[in-house]
């Protein structure tokens, strides 16, 4: 398994290095004439108001929350899915119950209106 990971590590290095080198070379080739107007933050031609790192609405958090729960849950299901062919009915029913509990959670969030984009 370590060999496979060695390949992935090398591949990642190559995949990151190639674009990085390309950008570096392009940076050498490209003209460099910065001026304050050009470097100003783009805001449809209007003067920039306030810091850019503004406040968000809670909506984003709620979606991220639902995602977090379902992500962790599906990760737990992957080992189960691998063993699925060798499992007795009891174990399958157990996983179905596991899923059903989370469907309940989804419907709670739905009823509560957490899944409506405002």
């Amino acid at each position: 398994m370590l060999n496979a990971w060695l390949y992935i590590g090398l591949f990642t290095l190559v995949a990151a290095a190639l674009p990085a080198i390309a950008i570096f070379l392009a940076g050498l080739l490209a003209p460099k004439k910065p001026n304050p107007i050009k470097n100003a933050t783009y805001e449809c031609g209007v003067e920039t108001v306030g810091p850019a790192w503004t406040q968000l609405r809670v909506q984003y958090y709620l979606f991220a929350l639902a995602f977090l729960i379902f992500d962790v849950e599906s990760v737990l299901l992957f080992p189960w899915a691998v063993a699925y062919q060798q499992l007795p009915l009891f174990a399958i029913v157990e996983a179905v119950i596991f899923l059903a509990i989370l469907v309940g959670g989804l419907f709670y969030a739905w009823r509560k209106g957490a899944l409506n984009w405002q």
Binding site: I23, L29, P34, N39
Partner: peptide, 17 residues
Amino acid sequence: FTKEHITPAGADRIPFN
């Protein structure tokens, strides 16, 4: 490839690049 790279003022360099 030959276009200018503009870095906006106040950008956080490392994440930006």
